[in-house]
Nucleic acid binder design. Structure first.
Length: 417
RNA sequence: GUGAGCGUAGCUCAAUCGGAUAGAGCACCAGACUGUGGCUCUGGGGGUUGGGGGUUCAAUUCCCCUCGCUCACCCCA
């Protein structure tokens, strides 16, 4: 094999692409009903956008980015996520100047240099939303309800919503310090990674999966009990709205996200059927990021969903992609007549394929069978002379003649039946 | 970055203790069947056994290196 896909990347095509499109169309439809507008940002940005946006000390920035120099020596990075880009765009185009709440969504490929495994690729696709300009807890709840709605509409089950609060710039530093103090006390019981994290990112220790660490953390200070009054009230309202919206959730005090910009609400949706890469989507509130980018103080909320993982869950669903293509079969020297027929169908929005290479009627029908085709038009020499085609329904094993001028109307009726 | 398992035809898999021209099913092509499908029968094409090196009279089989895939750690969507 002389050339092949780069490690961690893959081609997505029929029939898998059908699930992909199904999800995308459904999601777009629903997003529209919540008044979200699409934004397409560049696949690559100056490295600084991600370094500042995601946080210099995160694993993503530290060791997972595709970074390279362009021909003028500028440092460029393939986007590892899209929130930083959208924030950059929000500021670059001064969207805040319009006032009100801005609701944006994006869909497209992201890139991270990681060892591939089930549900994890180096090029993967995300659908995400960002809401700018409101610190109202209703936004947290409604934006979570939006994605739960999407998941339900595409028929996913067996998912759970975990939620937590990371506090704000007032109460988080206090908690962080208390946690650090606690961690130093049990340092000897922690794994090597966690020992390092005590200084770099103590909250991440809470999320460690090493059993001995979990055990040692049993009596760790709980962030839920360290929240300030404002954060407590915010969270209580988020919970209240979620309940009135009918969204079920679990409070998970150890839920910490891997990106530095989150404040207050963080959440994720996990599946039991994805192996170890079980997070299908995650997100939360980031009230300080826009300001840190040098913009006006603008609260925001967002989430990102892994489409590759979602499609993996769609695998077992029974998709009924009926083949509605009309296969037009020549007989004798009648390819011109076939094309003439196809043209009429296509002008009327019907899909058709001229079986130009078939060497006999028998082979053509055989070939249609293999493609799971149902509708056939035989447009041979004798049909041309009579100005008709023979319509054949392979499933019902019936056939009849149709005048050429009536085919669009009659076939539409047949297909809609 | 770390660990484990696996790489044989387009796909799923065989090949005895290291032994002869690497097989089968499905798929594909052709014929039986020259304007009416799924079946059946007959025949056919298709392989650098992932790549490289080593041991051996002999390697798909054993050893080393390398590449790839898969899963897990890590991280995250």
């Amino acid at each position: 094999m002389p050339v092949k896909t780069v490690k961690g990347t893959r081609d997505i095509f029929y029939p898998d692409i059908e699930k992909w499109k199904f999800f995308e169309e459904k999601a777009r439809e629903i997003l529209k009903t919540y008044n979200f507008k699409e934004i397409i940002t560049p696949i690559f940005e100056y490295t600084e956008v991600f370094a500042r946006g995601i946080g210099e000390d995160t694993d993503i920035v530290h060791k997972e980015m595709y970074t390279f120099k362009d021909r003028k020596g500028r440092s460029i990075t393939l986007r590892p996520e899209n929130t930083a880009s959208v924030v950059r765009a929000y500021l670059e185009h001064k969207m805040y100047a319009e006032g009100g709440i801005k609701r944006l969504f994006y869909i497209g490929p992201m890139f991270r240099y990681e060892r591939p495994q089930k549900g994890r690729y180096r090029q993967f696709f995300q659908l995400g939303v960002e809401v700018f300009g409101s610190k109202n807890p209703f936004i947290d709840a409604e934006t979570i309800e939006l994605v739960i709605n999407i998941l339900e509409k595409v028929g996913l089950k067996g998912l759970s919503v975990n939620i937590n609060s990371l506090g704000c710039e007032k109460c988080r530093p206090v908690y962080r310090e208390n946690l650090q103090k606690f961690l130093k006390g049990i340092k000897e019981k922690l794994c090597e990674d966690c020992k390092r994290r005590i200084d770099t990112n103590p909250l991440r220790v809470l999320d460690c999966k090493v059993p001995s660490c979990k055990e040692a953390l049993k009596d760790a200070p709980n962030i839920q009990q360290s929240l300030c009054e404002d954060c407590k009230e915010h969270q209580a309202k988020v919970f209240h709205y979620l309940e009135t919206m009918g969204v079920k959730y679990e409070v998970e005090p150890n839920l910490v996200r891997g990106l530095d910009y989150y404040t207050r609400t963080v959440f994720e949706v996990v599946s039991d059927n994805l192996g170890s890469q079980n997070a299908i989507l995650g997100g939360g509130r980031y009230d300080n990021l826009v300001k840190e980018f040098g913009g006006p103080d603008t609260p925001a909320f967002g989430w990102a969903l892994g489409i590759d993982r979602l499609v993996l869950l769609l695998e077992d669903k029974n998709f009924d992609f009926a083949n509605k293509t009309i296969y037009i079969v020549p007989a004798g020297n009648s390819i011109d007549y076939c094309f003439q027929t196809a043209k009429i169908l296509r002008e009327n929005g019907l899909a058709s394929e001229v079986m130009a290479d078939s060497k006999s009627l028998k082979k053509a029908l055989n070939s249609v069978n293999k493609q799971r085709g149902r509708f056939v038009l035989i447009a041979g020499e004798s049909e041309r002379e009579k100005g008709i085609v023979i319509f054949k329904d392979m499933e019902n094993k019936t056939q009849r003649e149709i005048k050429l001028e009536n085919i669009a109307k009659e076939l539409k009726d047949e297909i809609d039946k």
